[in-house]
């Protein structure tokens, strides 16, 4: 299995790279959103799947990226790619500002603090109308760039996954896991847990920041309620959890399955869609909290790289 995995992935990547030449506009935009979800779920996995510190406000980094890019493109006329990268940087700055105090909080208190962060950012963005357009939102100049955004989004998803691979197979990643397993013992074994958590947190903010910028560019319009919805955080968590948090491929798998399900099924039950989503969350939490890959890994004692 380990032998054909890289080959299979390579074929898949080539196919995805060639897709825009044949795909329809709708298809490309759908795939682009799938990439976005992979990047988001995987980024959440970096901090929460590995260290066990559950970030319930991860969409804040997405929103930060969206607004940074939106303002840079709309007001200062930056090229969109550069603006999106700046979005990633600003998300990291936000992670530093928030993580420095909040990563000292334990368990449910960290969750509450992160939950609040998102609310507060939305409020602040709505308030500074001069810069952000407030509740009226921010419109970006029209640009038809689905294909470049497709590649950019795909590249972010790929990079975050590659980063996860590198981390999980390194001692840095193992040390992050010791925090999840037993933080007191990790400290006693000489691991500076705070520093490690902070690094993981910073890394986990970059992807959502860039992706947020790309999504803003793609949609051409952002408003506080559309870039800071709690439901986005919940969705990325459920994707990572469903596929298997703390694994390399779990978030990818979870994102693909849940996104496909969403596209195929939910669209037909527009009124029930949230109810179904609630039911899915409850089912995943109660029946398979370890996720698909987590269960497989434990059952067959698979290496971490699968």
């Amino acid at each position: 299995m380990a032998r054909w995995l890289p080959a299979g992935l390579l074929v898949l990547l080539v196919l995805l790279a060639l897709y825009p030449m044949h795909g329809t506009g709708y298809g490309i935009r759908t795939m682009l959103q799938l990439f976005m979800w992979i990047a988001l779920a995987q980024s959440w996995n970096l901090i929460s799947g590995l260290t066990g510190y559950v970030s319930f406000g991860h969409v804040a980094f997405f929103g930060m990226g969206a607004y940074t890019a939106g303002i840079l493109i709309g007001t200062l006329g930056w090229p969109w790619l550069l603006a999106c990268l700046a979005g990633g940087v600003m998300a990291m700055v936000l992670a530093l500002v928030i993580g420095w105090p909040c990563l000292r909080l334990k368990g449910p208190y960290f969750a509450i603090a992160m939950l609040g962060l998102n609310e507060v950012l939305r409020v602040i963005v709505s308030y500074y109308e001069g810069l952000t357009g407030g509740g009226n939102g921010l419109s970006l100049p029209t640009l038809h760039a689905s294909v470049p955004i497709y590649y950019a989004m795909g590249l972010v998803a790929l990079s975050v996954t590659a980063l996860t691979y590198v981390i999980v197979t390194s001692r840095f990643g193992l040390r992050l896991m010791t925090i999840r397993e037993d933080e007191v013992a990790a400290e006693a074994m000489g691991i500076d847990t705070f520093r490690y958590k902070l690094y993981a947190f910073l890394l986990s903010a970059v992807g959502p920041g860039i992706v947020g910028g790309l999504a803003a560019r793609d949609q051409g319009y952002i408003e506080p309620t559309s870039v800071f919805p709690l439901i986005t955080t919940i969705t990325m968590i459920v994707m990572a959890l469903f596929g298997g948090k703390g694994t390399i491929w779990g978030p990818v798998l979870g994102a693909v399955l849940l996104f496909t399900f969403q596209e195929l099924v939910w669209a037909r039950f527009i009124y029930l869609h949230q109810l179904l989503f609630g039911a899915i969350i409850i089912t995943v939490v109660l029946l398979m909290p370890r996720g698909i890959l987590g269960v497989l890994q434990q059952k067959y004692n698979l290496p971490r790289t699968i």
Binding site: M177, T178, R180, E181, D182, V184, A185, A186, A188
Partner: peptide, 11 residues
């Protein structure tokens, strides 16, 4: 070492 074992179980 600890009185109650504190290995990292999933490592």
């Amino acid at each position: 070492t600890f009185q109650v074992i504190r290995v990292f179980p999933e490592l």
